[in-house]
């Protein structure tokens, strides 16, 4: 039995069970008596927000990959590194594990997250009722892995902090790092905007009839 079928909902913050006022079924909202948060049966405009933020992250992802993450200034000149050139550098110098970590965190994870979110939005919009459990797992995966993409931004910051020898050699953050940061923030917001209960709704409506 779904909570929404009984005019109930749970508080997004403290998980308190809340009764919705019955007046207007389209615009129900209640206030949690325990923590005062506003409670809606489903996150509002969940699909629209998720889709918009995911598309924004795809837009940010292009300059994040094309523009340099950092500029390395040495007495020999300036060298600029993009995400991919960093990965290739590690693979060429034999640091396979680190190359793999950077590849997974900076390229594989963001792309996977965007694809999963697009797929989930699509599957909910078309009212798909098969494989709800698998799709829920995909959603939980995007929630868990999202923050790990920050690794590359942190690596750039630590390099900046450590390689700081005045005119001799120094490292400067590139514009790519800013866009990459935006990708991580926006994909995290996109995952938060998605309401996993929407995945289950078609399956339960099916049972109710």
């Amino acid at each position: 039995m779904r909570a929404i079928d009984r005019n109930l909902g749970s508080c997004p913050v403290c998980h308190q069970l809340v009764h919705f006022p019955k007046r207007d079924p389209e615009h129900v909202a209640a206030y949690c008596p325990r923590c005062g948060s506003e409670v809606f049966p489903r996150k509002r405009s969940s699909l629209e927000y998720t889709l918009a933020l995911t598309l924004a992250s795809i837009v940010f992802y292009i300059p994040a990959n094309l523009l340099p993450m950092m500029h390395v200034h040495t007495f020999a000149g300036t060298q600029s590194d993009t995400i991919m050139s960093g990965v290739i550098y590690f693979l060429e110098t034999g640091s396979y594990l680190i190359g793999f970590v950077i590849f997974v965190a900076s390229i594989f994870v963001p792309v996977l997250k965007m694809l999963i979110l697009l797929y989930l939005v699509h599957s909910v919009r078309t009212g798909k009722s098969r494989f709800p459990k698998e799709r829920q797992r995909l959603y939980l995966l995007t929630e868990i892995i999202g923050r790990w993409s920050m690794v590359d931004v942190f690596v750039v910051s630590i390099m900046i902090a450590l390689v700081h020898f005045g005119g001799l050699s120094s490292i400067e953050a590139g514009t790519g790092a800013v866009f990459f940061l935006l990708v991580v923030i926006v994909t995290m917001l996109a995952a938060m905007a998605f309401d996993p209960r929407l995945i289950w709704d078609p399956t339960k409506e099916h049972h109710a009839h």
């Binding site: 590690f90 680190i98 923050r147 630590i158 450590l162």
Partner: peptide, 30 residues
Amino acid sequence: PEMMKVLEAITPWAMLDVFLVGVLVSIVKL
């Protein structure tokens, strides 16, 4: 209740564990 609400809201944005991995990668790089 306010403290719990703030705690709930900020938790996803604490990334010390990710930072540790960043430190390890930087060590190998440098």
